[in-house]
């Protein structure tokens, strides 16, 4: 580590953890608003009020005794996701993609017994996955059906799109693709692929896995450079609307594309991570400052999205990816 590295970080406008915590999270996010996003159930109910689509809620498990007859409560549900309402970082989320007799099947093919499922639920209620270990509730909701266009890009799991929304403006976006290394989870530090998306177009700018650049998905071999998110503007509008919904100035919206229902809000985050900068290959700071310097903020999500699409058009890094060198083409072809 040398001083040159420090200077380059500054030049690239990389937002560091300390600056994020002091300069943005504690300045723009009021503490009292946190429960709205830290509790997925509250987020869902609030989203319903603001006509923001989320996966349908099937069941809420609040008490230990409900777990005893969970079998009856789950009757008829083939595919579903169990989530701790206060879970953080995707912890404690269990996806069931089918049934096999009395057992449950995960997307990976692993089979869970009813006892396993009950234990998981009771862990959630006891607060194992919640922030600070406080007692929690479990929500059970419909599974997202991934858009077919993403099939080639994800190893199990549904790719989700993280959009950082600052004062209601979508300023940076990335697509998170599960890999074999990440065990089907869309968590960057577990080895998922992060694809930086151009705010203007929804096209791939850059892609990384474990901080390393890559051109193709490590498991499927699909070229990442050709990724383009359909229905991009309405997706951004959904994210921008979360500002009105929660009042949080600096938030991360996790959105998935459902095959039939279009963009769905999965969850919101009042402390969005910094990895999005790695995926995009650019720093957040210039964009944050750009928005902070705006004299008259736009009043509606539509106007803000249009402004952001114009202001944050992807640059530089995408050129090389869209015009791959010869050996990369060969690599892609052979894959």
């Amino acid at each position: 580590m040398n001083w040159r590295a420090l200077l380059s970080l500054r030049r690239y406008g990389i937002l560091g953890m300390n600056a994020r915590n002091i300069g943005y999270i504690s300045r723009y996010n009021e503490r009292r608003l946190y429960p709205l996003v830290d509790n997925k159930l509250k987020t869902k109910l609030l989203a319903a009020e603001h006509a923001i689509p989320t996966p349908d809620l099937r069941l809420v498990v609040r008490y230990q005794h409900q777990i005893r007859n969970i079998e009856q409560l789950l009757a008829g549900l083939q595919e579903f996701a169990i989530k701790p309402a206060k879970g953080a970082g995707g912890k404690g989320i269990l996806i069931i993609s089918g049934r096999k007799g009395k057992d449950f099947v995960k997307p990976s093919g692993a089979v869970l017994s009813l006892t396993d499922l009950k234990r998981h639920l009771s862990n959630i209620l006891a607060g194992l996955y919640s922030l600070g270990g406080s007692p929690d509730i479990a929500i059970i909701e419909d599974l997202i059906e991934a858009d077919d266009r993403f099939d080639r890009y994800s190893y199990q799991g549904v790719p989700d799109i993280r959009i950082v929304v600052f004062k209601g403006y979508p300023i940076m976006a990335m697509l998170r693709l599960a890999t074999r290394a990440s065990d089907g989870k869309a968590n960057l530090h577990q080895g998922a692929v992060g694809v930086g998306l151009d705010i203007a177009t929804g096209r791939c700018l850059n892609a990384v896995q474990h901080s390393r650049r890559l051109r193709v998905h490590p498991d499927t071999g699909a070229s990442l450079a050709s990724i383009e998110i359909p229905d991009w503007e309405s997706l951004l509008r959904l994210a921008a609307g979360c500002y009105e919904m929660t009042g949080l100035g600096y938030l991360g919206a996790d959105i998935v594309l459902d095959k039939r229902r279009g963009p769905q809000l999965l969850e919101l985050n009042a402390r969005p991570g910094l990895a999005i900068q790695l995926a995009s290959g650019v720093g957040l700071l210039p964009r944050l400052r750009h928005i902070e310097a705006l004299q008259a903020p736009h009043p509606t999500p539509e106007a803000r999205v249009r402004y952001a699409m114009e202001a944050f058009r992807g640059q530089a890094t995408d050129i090389r990816i869209h015009a791959p060198a010869r050996e990369e083409v060969a690599e892609t072809l052979s894959a």
């Binding site: 590295a5 970080l9 690239y12 560091g16 910094l274 900068q277 290959g281 720093g283």
Partner: peptide
């Protein structure tokens, strides 16, 4: 973080 973000600077 100097290490974490060093790939960005490789350009």
């Amino acid at each position: 973080e100097l290490y974490r973000f060093h790939t960005i600077m490789l350009e």
